[in-house]
């Protein structure tokens, strides 16, 4: 007789636990406005990444097409996987001295792991992390970018 009671008790207990679980899922079912899905391409306007989000390395230019890069190559040294190539050139300053300057700051987006070490190491703050994350392209050559704009030069007063 005791065994029978135990048996009935296990049945009811088991059904009870199952109903508790169904209560949880059911409670979410009847609150459909609490869904967490974001419909991505539709919400492009409202979708804003955090300001520290590491989407890609960019080099900001001011309105005179000037940047802060001196071409020192520290970012290239700090990059763990060779995503950055610095091609420098020498220019003549006003007082006639030869000075190193950036010719091309080549950035291979396809190899970048977004570790932020280049940005952290840059002595002049010439490169920063951009928030753009839609990087898909049809051709992988498009992933190799030149960060300094054509015809740009270094801003006044930037010291190495």
């Amino acid at each position: 007789m005791n065994g029978l009671f135990e048996y009935i008790k296990t049945v009811f207990k088991g059904v009870g636990t199952l109903l508790t679980g169904m209560k949880i899922t059911g409670s979410y079912f009847f609150r459909p406005w609490k869904h967490v899905t974001q419909q991505y391409p539709e919400n492009r306007e409202t979708l804003k990444m955090f300001d520290r989000f590491r989407g890609e390395v960019i080099m900001p230019h001011n309105e005179n097409n000037e940047h802060l890069c001196t071409g020192c190559g520290i970012c290239e040294l700090n990059c763990p996987n060779g995503s950055i190539e610095i091609i420098s050139m020498s220019v003549l300053t006003e007082d006639g001295k030869k000075k190193r300057a950036i010719d091309k700051h080549i950035y291979h987006l396809g190899m970048c792991t977004f570790c932020n070490l280049c940005v952290k190491a840059c002595p002049t703050g010439a490169i920063i992390m951009g928030q753009e994350f839609e990087h898909a392209v049809w051709d992988r050559t498009k992933l190799t970018k030149v960060l300094n704009l054509p015809g740009s030069k270094i801003a006044q007063g930037v010291k190495e």
Binding site: M49, F50, R52, R54, F114
Partner: peptide, 27 residues
């Protein structure tokens, strides 16, 4: 992951520690 993204800049591959401290201060 949102907390990580705001402070560290990435969700999974955070790379927030450096020898001698942290990459950034907390947000």
């Amino acid at each position: 992951l949102d907390i990580f993204e705001e402070t560290c800049g990435a969700r999974m591959t955070v790379n927030y520690n450096l020898p001698g401290g942290l990459m950034f201060d907390i947000h």
